[in-house]
């Protein structure tokens, strides 16, 4: 059985881009910009519903990057230097942790268009604890283990508040594990994520991207989440080896970083081939990463392809 949904930040439309620029130049106020964000989130949800995606997201349209709500909202943390976002021509502001972390609960929620999602099978996206810790600058701990432990507590509170607000699915995004692999990373990353999802009453997923998942298998399949996945454009698929337990396998089969629209037949074949290699009964076809690397109209076209591939995989 195949599912399909989005895996990250969706690009802003040309109209919204114009509005954000006007806002930054002081030519429009925050309430007018907020209204546009809200309307655009509703349009995106309608698009996802129309194309039969199994979970819907608000596209994280307000998020300046995956880490920003936490960087902006956690006491003792601020959004620091402009830093390249992996191997992309886009950047994030590295969170600078100046004081021991304290959960605030609801940071991500405040940046979410909840009204657009209410009553829908709503999917939220957070950084994994491993990714957040690795992509931040630590000026408070000097001890990776203690930092990771506290990041997990922060994300645990975030996940709980999202679940309480009605979210049905939480994906933890982790480009670090595969794009910046480190010896011995899997065990602490797994332990931290286990703490985050412990007792959480929603579907959970770990999604990796921008790097080859092959070296992390089969360990990646042991993470304590309901779904686990990787980027097919960065993975040597013919070298994949492992056996999925009971999880749904998330397969990033539509390239979120190139405008070339995939041939749905070819993508469906690749997805089936990977599912067979890993003995997966259930797969979800997803974009390889956030679609924010594409212009809005191309991303919309990719959503349509996603629906086609889902139908073909069956």
């Amino acid at each position: 059985m195949a599912f399909a949904h989005l895996t990250g930040i969706f690009p802003r439309s040309e109209e919204l881009i114009t509005a954000t620029r006007a806002f930054e130049r002081g030519r429009t106020d925050k309430s007018a910009l907020d209204r546009l964000f809200e309307e655009e989130a509703q349009r995106l949800v309608a698009l996802e519903v129309e194309h039969g995606l199994d979970y819907v997201t608000d596209g994280l349209l307000r998020w300046q990057d995956l880490l920003r709500p936490l960087a902006d909202e956690l006491p003792g943390v601020h959004a620091g230097p402009v830093t390249r976002w992996f191997d992309n021509n886009s950047f994030y502001r590295r969170p600078v942790i100046e004081a021991p972390l304290e959960p605030v609960s609801g940071a991500a929620l405040r940046w979410t268009s909840v009204r657009a999602l209410e009553g829908r099978p709503w999917k939220a996206i957070l950084p994994s604890p491993w990714a957040f810790a690795a992509l931040s600058e630590d000026r408070a701990y000097g001890d990776d283990k203690a930092l990771l432990r506290d990041v997990a507590e922060v994300l645990r509170a975030e996940a709980a508040s999202l679940a309480a607000a009605g979210c049905r699915y939480i994906q933890f995004s982790d480009p670090v594990l595969v794009a910046r692999p480190r010896e011995g990373a899997l065990a602490p990353a797994q332990l931290a994520l286990a703490r985050v999802v412990e007792g959480l009453n929603v579907c959970t997923a770990l999604y990796t991207f921008f790097g080859d998942a092959v070296p992390l298998l089969p360990g990646l399949l042991d993470f304590p989440v309901h779904e686990v996945g990787f980027d097919l454009f960065a993975t040597e698929v013919d070298r994949l080896d492992g056996r999925v337990r009971e999880q749904v396998l998330l397969l990033g089969g539509l390239n979120g970083r190139n405008s070339l629209l995939e041939d749905p037949q070819e993508t469906a074949q690749t997805v089936r081939r990977v599912a067979d290699r890993l003995h997966a009964d259930q797969v979800a076809v997803v974009p390889s990463c956030d679609l924010e690397f594409l212009p809005y109209e191309v991303a919309v076209a990719k959503v349509r392809r996603l629906a086609e591939v889902k139908r073909l995989v069956g």
Binding site: R12, Q64, V82, W85, F91, E292, Y296, E297, V298
Partner: peptide, 17 residues
Amino acid sequence: FYGHVRSFDYRYYRKAA
């Protein structure tokens, strides 16, 4: 040219194929 993509925050550039 297809449209804008984000560089960071509210900064964007027009990206061509």
